[in-house]
Write a protein that binds this DNA or RNA. Structure first.
Lengths: 253, 253
DNA sequence: GACAAGATGTGCGATTATCGCACAATATCC
DNA sequence: GGATATTGTGCGATAATCGCACATCTTGTC
């Protein structure tokens, strides 16, 4: 990398840091060298820097993230008033749904959760938090984000054949997915049942923008809770009200 | 920095990234050069790298974090099963408290929120999220974290005279704070009223460890809600039950 | 306990990345 | 429109970083 374009050592370091984003409990320096393809000595120096700066801690030969990284992402959340404005609204509507609600944006090929709230009675999934990434094609929130994306983004995603199948009923045919995304665009909401997690259904609506990215609001519940048309319509109505409430806030204009 | 010790360019880059942790909506390259003390050209190159790697976006001359940073911190949350295990427990006990509950660890001179939950009726503060930093001396959760810290850490903090006063009643006398921390250690809980946010009171108990750091569990409510002894005892009982529930989980053993 | 495999630590010469500065261009503010 | 602030760029010098090889330590298997 020519110096005018940036700092290649920093870019390498960011790749090392990103290795920890996958959520494994800990990685060795050897793991990191393998995952990044960097020379062992380079990987080691970059890890030592992360330790020195407080982002990693060393437990024997295993390195793990410290909570310091949460501080940086809190900067993002604070900049967009997620804690002060968005979260209370999500808490309110999670109660009205008596379940779970999440706000996400599209980031690369994922739906990236920015905030979420759930009541105690909400169905426990594999544990999504702010920062969790969900695939776009088998989830309601993902399809709504695709519905709000330019056509070339959708086309590019659907070209990656074959798309991964998460359950026996995951739709992966490009034509069918294009149709589903178009339907979400037209109807102003997306509904998916059992295509990402068996037994789970999702519903999503569009809502404003965060930074430069369009956002979607979604809820996930057991199939039984969202399958009945009346229950689904009620949930959709609550989601729309939540979207309106969020839409009134300057940060999500 | 000798190469054997790490990568100084990466360290500088991490300092640039950390500038965004303060939560301002956006920073210019000039802002970053000022805050870090780096030469303008260095700051620019490091910012370009963050843009190239997808962590920042440029809006005119203002740079702002993208949600990609949330992904890295989600790695920390996933590694410690915050979403799958901790969050549902916090959601349950937030409802029992009919308010707010948060889990924090000590990081440098702050209480760093790792997870939190609130009901719709919870008092809205300045908007704390995972990653938010609170000062240690004027908050219940902070005092409990100090109560769980080695004596030298406490001494070092109290030596930084004068400690900041957040309200008219913020205690800053080292002797009195040492006493309060000792009381929290002995009683197994900390209670603070109106010392951090006017009109807000906090209650905290110790709970296990996350990674290598000891943790505390706290709740915050209006002074009126926690001032009556009976209400406070009830809240304390619920917090202790939450701590027990969390303590049963391997990740917080 | 021995051996093999895997991981980490270290030194070092070569090379490249990065540095900081100066100058130019652009944008914003009054 | 002028002043101020910010950004963009080129470039020679310097220091950081590179990757490799060798050594040491730790872990796993028999």
């Amino acid at each position: 990398m020519a110096s005018a374009d940036g700092a290649s050592t920093f870019a390498k370091g960011l790749r090392v840091l990103a290795c920890f984003g996958a959520g494994s409990r800990g990685l060795t320096m050897a793991d990191i060298a393998r995952q990044t393809g960097f020379d062992r000595a380079s990987a080691r120096r970059l890890c030592l820097t992360l330790i020195e700066e407080g982002y990693l801690r060393k437990d024997g030969r295993v390195l793990e993230l410290t909570p310091k990284i949460l501080s940086v992402s809190a900067g993002y959340l604070m900049a967009h008033e997620i804690g002060r404005v968005v979260q209370p609204i999500l808490n309110l509507f999670a109660e009205r749904l008596d379940g779970e609600i999440a706000l996400a944006v599209r980031d690369d090929d994922s739906a990236l959760y920015v905030a979420q709230s759930a009541t105690a009675s909400a169905r426990v999934s594999i544990g999504f938090t702010a920062g969790s990434r969900l695939p776009l094609w088998p989830t309601a929130i993902g399809r709504m984000l695709l519905a709000r994306s330019p056509d070339d983004i959708v086309a590019k995603l659907l070209e990656q054949a074959p798309l991964r199948r998460f359950t026996e009923t995951t739709e992966t045919a490009p034509g069918a997915l294009r149709q589903a995304i178009e339907t979400a665009r037209r109807d102003g909401h997306a509904f998916v049942s059992g295509e990402f997690e068996r037994g789970a259904a999702g519903l999503a609506v569009p809502v404003g923008r965060i930074g430069g990215a369009s956002a979607a609001l979604g809820t996930t519940a057991s199939v039984n809770r969202l399958a009945p048309r009346e229950a689904r319509d009620r949930a959709l109505d609550i989601l729309r009200q939540a979207a309106i409430a969020l839409g009134r806030e300057p940060g999500l204009g």
